[in-house]
Amino acid sequence: MTATQIPTRAAPTQEAPRRRPLPLRRLVPYGYLSPVIVLMIVLMIVPVVVVIRYSFLDNVIMTPTSSLVGWHNYVTVLGDPLFRTAARNTAVFTSVSVAVHLLLGLAFAMLLNTTLLGQRTKTVFRTIFVMPWLLTVAIIAILWRLLLDPNGVVNYGLQGVGLIDTPVAWFSDLNLALPAVTFVNIWAGYPFFMVSLLAGLQGISADLYEAAAVDGASWLQRFVHVTLPSLRPIIVSMALLDLIWTSQQFPLIWMTTGGGPLDRTEMLSTYTYKLAFSKYEFAWASASAVVLLVLAMVLAVFYVRYQRARD
């Protein structure tokens, strides 16, 4: 090992004045960021802090003075049987929606990625499959309320083919309301999975499939050992995001069933809304919202960790 000689620069005849960073210069990056920082503080941090504060107070908003009640609001909300029903419904609604979103999205993405169909056919399918994504929640709710109405097209069709004798009130039936509203949510949400997974499928190298085929792998083996591992990062990210979004779904439930019949489609979001704007119990509603926030944050932490691990 030989020592390397580092070339040295000739010392300047006159030492250049050292530039000390001015305080203003150090603020430059913050200056650029300040509009976003202010927006985030005002629109996100402040409301969240206010709601957390409300959740520890008594009779907020409705009375001029409020007193600190500690965890009392949380005890009240968590002890409410309707909260537990709402939590259970939310869990069922969310888990089924996410699972079927994933399955449907993957199935349609693979259909659109197959070489067995012509380009024109795939374009037609892609246009049809992506359509639910183009509609707003309000339109989706109205559309399905009309379709699933006892006098609607779905009942007419089912009666026409002899599957049912009398019209079914899908959103009003105690046993069918939750499946019906979950179905609508699945219909509205699968295109997001489909588009993302299609992009993922198109990024998988054909070499991998060829190598697997040379090794004698069947279609199923190629799917299990090539496709799924390649899509895993997208699937996990999408599933976590969908869990967060679906667990907070409010407008679709509100505009189709309103949480009814009875408490059959009551979700944590509709439960919280009713506490605030029907019962005017804003402190309880704040506690319920904070519980929902904590659940979403747990999922968000998983998502961020996963993203970091990927990076």
Binding site: L24, R25, L27, V28, G31, Y32, L33, P35, V42
Partner: peptide, 15 residues
């Protein structure tokens, strides 16, 4: 840069 800081801060304040 200084102009940008001022513009950024002003827009932040106006927001």
């Amino acid at each position: 840069s200084r102009v940008m800081v001022v513009v950024g801060a002003a827009s932040a304040l106006s927001l």
